[in-house]
Each structure stands twice: as C-alpha cells, then as structure tokens.
Design a protein around this nucleic acid. Structure first.
Lengths: 340, 340
DNA sequence: CCGGTTACTGTAACCGGTTACAGTAACCAT
DNA sequence: ATGGTTACTGTAACCGGTTACAGTAACCGG
C-alpha cells in the first residue's frame, strides 16, 4: 500500500513555506530564533495546513513521552476516587503532561510488568498496591520516576510517597468518644488485612485507649473490610452474641453506613445508646441519619501533591520522601454532639 | 552528548541472538514464522535482556497509537464517575488498548483543539459537552473515530453515542407518584439549562402529567441544577413563598438530598406530607432517611458499551448510531412506599 | 536433474520528528 | 581589507521500530 497517512507532516509545512524542516521544527519549539519574514510565513502555513506535530515521532526523537501514568488496582469504587483523579489531572494538565491510566487487572494475568512504564510514560503514579515490590525495585534501580499514592514505600526502597495521616486523627476521634461522650467500650472495625490505612487507624485507636488507661479488648476488634455489608453483618453478629459496647469506630464511612443500618435494625439508638464514627468524610456522610462524625481526608489534595511530586522528579528534581497530608476530625451528630 | 538511551533496543536483541532486527520484530509480533532454534534463542535473549519494545517507535512505524482517549469536562464530581471509568477501563484493557485521559479545563483556555486527538490516540470517547461542535465536525469529516457519552450527536453529525434512557423512567416514576400515592402537585427541579439529561427528564415529567390530565403548572418547575445546595435553597424559597405541593421530583439524587434537608428544616414530613423522588440511584441513596425512591442508571454499563463501540470503530467496523441504555425505577421509602 | 514451492531470513527504506554540525551573509572593530 | 562575531538556515544523522522486497536453502513432484 505505502499509503502515507493523510495527516500533514513537517515536510509539507517546510515545502509550503519554502524553508527546511529544521527551521520549521525550531520555530515550533522555539528552540532558536527565526527571521521575522520566515516566522510570519510559517504562521500562515501552519494555520492553513492545520499542522499538528506527530506525537509518536516527537516522542521517539526526544526520548520523552510527555505522559504520566497512573496505575490503579481493580477496586476503584468509592467516593474518594473521583476527587483524587481530579487533583491529579488538574496539575498534570497544567504542566502540559498527558495522563495515562491503567488498572492492573489486565487480562495478561500477573505478568510482572505493568502496562505502563518507562517505554510509554515519563514517570508513574502508583496507587496503593498496584505495583509489586519487585517491579518497584526494578524501577528504583533504573531510576525511573515513581511516586506512590496511599501506600508507604517498602523497606529498602526509598520511593517518594504521599498519603494521609491516619493515626493521629484516629486517636483524636477515639479521644473524643472517650473524653466528651464518656464511652469506654468502643468497637473498632478493621479494614482489609495488610491495608496500611487500616493498620494506622487501628494504631490510633489503640493509642487512644492506652492514653486513657482502657485495656485493649480483643473482643471489640473485628473485621469491617471498609465495606458496608461486611460491617453490617459483623455488627449484627456481635449484638446477637451479646457483646457489650457503647460506641463504634467503623474504620471508614462505608463501614459506618453498615453499622448505622445494623444498629437501626437491632433497635439500638444512635447516638443515644451508641456513638458511631467513621473515617473519610464521604460526600454523603453529612446527610446520613444521624449525620456522621468522621475524619476528613484531603483526597483531592493527595492527588495534587502526588502529581506535583512526580513532575518534580521527571524534571530532574528531588521529591519529598514522604508527604503525610493532615486530616481533621469533623464533629456531627452520630457521636452524640449537637452540630448544626 | 549523543548518549543513547539506556534502554535495550531491538538491535541489541538482534545482535545478541545473531539474527537480523527484522527477524526479531517478526517473532515478537508473530507476523511470520521463525525457525525453532531461532525462536528459542530469542526467547532466552528477550528474557535476559528484559527487552520491551519502544512504544513511540512502534507507534510511528505502524501509525497506530494503541490508545483510546477519554475527554472529560471539569465537573467530574459525583458518584457516577468512578463506575463509568471502571466500565471503560475494563473493556479497553481487555482489548489491549491504553486509556488516555484529559479534561478540557486545560490552561490553554479554549484552544479549539483538545489535548487528545488523531495524533496521539486511535479514537476518542467524548463525555458530555467536552467536545465542541466544530471539533466534532472536524473529526467527523476526517473520519476519526469518536463515540459520545452522555450526549446525543449534534444535528448533522451522525456520531455514535451512548447514553441512558431518561424520559421513560422519569415518566414512570412520576406515574408512580400519581397513581400509587395520589400526588397531583408535583414539583420538578430542573438540571442545568441545555443539559440533555435534564431536558428528557422534564419531558418525562410532562408526559406523565399529560397522561393523567394534570395541567402543566409553571409554578411547580424550578431550577435545581442537580446540586444539593441549589435544590435546598430553591425548596426553602418555594415553601416560604407559600407554593402548595405534595411531591417533588428532584431531577437527580444530589438535588433530592437537598430537598430532603430543606423539607426537614421547614418541618415537612417525608413521605407523609410530601413524597420525594430522585434520579441516578447514587451509592448513598438507600441510606438516606427516608431511603430514596429513584431511578437506577447503569453507569458502569454505559462505560463498557461506549468502550466497545469505539473499539469496533477503530477496528474498522460500524458502531450503533445510538445506544440508549435502559433504566429502572427503584422503589424505596421516600415516595411513601414501605420497602424493606 | 530441474522448475516450482515452501520456509525462513536479511537489507534497506520508511514512519515524522529533533538536533549536531556546517555553512552563509551581514555586521563590526581593527 | 581582515578576522571575529552574530543571526539565521540547511543537510543529514539520528530516535527504534515495521515491512516490502529480494534472496537462499531445502524439499517435492515429474
């Protein structure tokens, strides 16, 4: 066939304007000055021909892709995902990069290499456990820019990461339950095992108990998996089993919704009989009944910061080893307070 | 400098294996058979060298990018976004494409050409009004594959689109209000002007009224903008203005949340005094008080279908001019029914 | 033994840009 | 006039793949 692509190339422009392709390239990229006459002639030709440089050709020549990859895990549910993406997209677009997204559930099973990497991106953002440790190690040793989101870097791989402060806010919200509402038997619903957020939230919970001389009681800590249904059935079982408690720290807001449903179902009043608190401050949390006391995580900011970090790295700079974004507790009614 | 990129190229592989680069290429792409000895030698070399073909080079040579673009508008809030993306990503990944995302809020203001187009994607998915009509026309005439999501194609541009059935379900839910709950003065809260979903939902509302011989009353139709706050203040004003009504079709679930808040604030009971229904069935809708009667839109399916269509187009096939995904009303308590 | 397949392989010309290097002309100071 | 700048421009060699075309050897039927 040898049919050239129908698109207009730099040579077409050069011919039309009566200059060499090098001049066209230089003018377009502003990498050298061009005589005024040539400039205006080029302006005109570029306009009439509607020339757009071919990305692949440019990438090949410059050895840059101008794209940043975002690696996701399959479980992109949840409210927090859209804001995170917005944060990322915003700064990436402003910096003139494109965003490439891939989730690692790809059909090729567990090929150790992800769909995004050095050959099609200038750097990648790895969400949670979307990257295995071995891939991470490989990227690290080849100095390929990577920033981790919602995940700490593995032991011997000092890869920059950005996530939110879980422990302090968890302690604070449990403190609130104890200090303000005099709760002492507080159930904690864990997230998925080996999940970092979950781990640190539990640490916050334990730290608060310790600080108040309340012994840790294994009978009060159960799986909630950050999921509504799981939390709901767990709570129902606990109640049926006769476990005594006066408050629930649900792990996250999704689980809190399940807890609320379970308590209503079992005839317990919130917040009179039991206080309930969550973590995340989802969009719907203010509108639950009662409105949910929880912890606000600056999700969009996480995205923004992560994007800034990877861009800094790509530009040859240093990134911060660890960015822990502050969280704040937001008091509503489910704990027993009377907010507006 | 002339420093070659550190990455291993097809020539390195060829040299190591003692064959020509053409042979390596053919083996990798399975475009021709290769003798068994060469094959096994290549397997080995590929493995030890960890060769990964350079995407840009391949794109340049084949004139394909193997990527699909998704154009977004700035307002990617909302629950519906994550599922839509999941649907898209799922089928795109399965088909071996990459997903490129860009929102059109880019700093270069309203440059008429979007960041994603023929030079860096094989086809694009345009969400809502992310593409201007003139760009759409240009793509259409150059036969560049485009599929529209949540938007109908403009008059003279038969571009495939996939969206959700709004009118029938809206009529059905208003029918329910009238037939089952004997409501007659039903407020409708419009979405943003010129928004297609909003238009068809209003058509459904009107059609239902007509079918029941209830005259359309302009006093009952007000802006809700699909936003919580707007809906809430609108409702409060209406009540203060003394408008009589016994039901509200909120336009969408977000607005319904605002309506619920306004009614509570003004001392009206739902559903005893007024029935409230929404549209979308957001994740939180079952957990509102009372649980929200609404319409379920198959958002993830929209993403999947759109992705399938664009892939079909890219592969040279025909796409369906219009895919209208069915919606279904889901009855809960806010209308007055007693669901579980 | 010979012509025609079949199976495989290599050479070299692309794809569409960027950029090192060399060259030209104009200008300036000596 | 001479040499040294400065300002601009063109030639051609890349970047790392794909693929048309040509070539070779082995095999097969007559």
């Amino acid at each position: 066939m040898t049919r050239r692509s129908s698109s207009v190339t730099i040579r077409d422009v050069a011919k039309q304007a009566g200059v060499s392709i090098a001049t066209v390239s230089r003018y377009i990229n502003q990498t050298a000055t061009v005589s005024p006459e040539v400039a205006s002639r080029l302006d005109e030709v570029l306009e009439t021909l509607k020339y757009v440089p071919h990305t692949a050709a440019r990438n090949l020549a410059t050895q840059k892709t101008n794209a940043i990859g975002l690696l996701l895990t399959y479980n992109i549910y949840g409210d927090f995902f859209a804001p995170m993406l917005r944060g990322i997209e915003e700064v990436i677009a402003d910096a003139g990069f494109n965003l490439l997204i891939s989730s690692n559930l790809s059909r090729d099973g567990n090929t150790h290499s992800p769909a995004l990497g050095p050959n099609n991106t200038d750097g990648i953002l790895g969400y949670a456990d979307s990257l295995t440790e071995s891939v991470l190690a490989h990227f690290y040793h080849t100095k390929f820019p990577v920033v981790l989101i919602y995940r700490a870097s593995p032991p011997h791989l000092p890869i920059p990461c950005v996530t939110v402060e879980n422990k302090a806010a968890s302690k604070e919200i449990v403190d609130h339950l104890i200090d303000v509402h005099h709760r002492r038997r507080i159930i904690f619903l864990r997230g998925p095992e080996h999940q970092e957020d979950s781990y640190w939230r539990e640490m916050g919970y334990r730290t608060s108990l310790e600080a108040h001389n309340i012994p840790y009681d294994a009978e009060l800590v159960w799986p909630g998996e950050f999921e509504r249904e799981v939390a709901q059935t767990t709570m129902i079982e606990l109640i049926l089993a006769g476990v005594e408690f006066d408050a629930v720290f649900a792990g996250d807001d999704d689980a809190a919704i399940g807890v609320l449903a379970a308590l209503r179902e079992m005839g317990k009043r919130v917040p009179e009989d039991v206080s309930v608190v969550g973590f995340d401050d989802q969009r719907s949390s203010p509108y639950l009944t009662p409105s949910l006391t929880t912890v606000r995580a600056p999700t969009e900011e996480v995205g923004r910061v992560a994007a800034q970090q990877i861009i800094k790295l790509i530009r040859g700079g240093q990134a911060d080893p660890l960015t822990l974004l502050p969280t704040e507790i937001v008091i509503r009614n489910s704990c027993g307070c009377q907010s507006d």
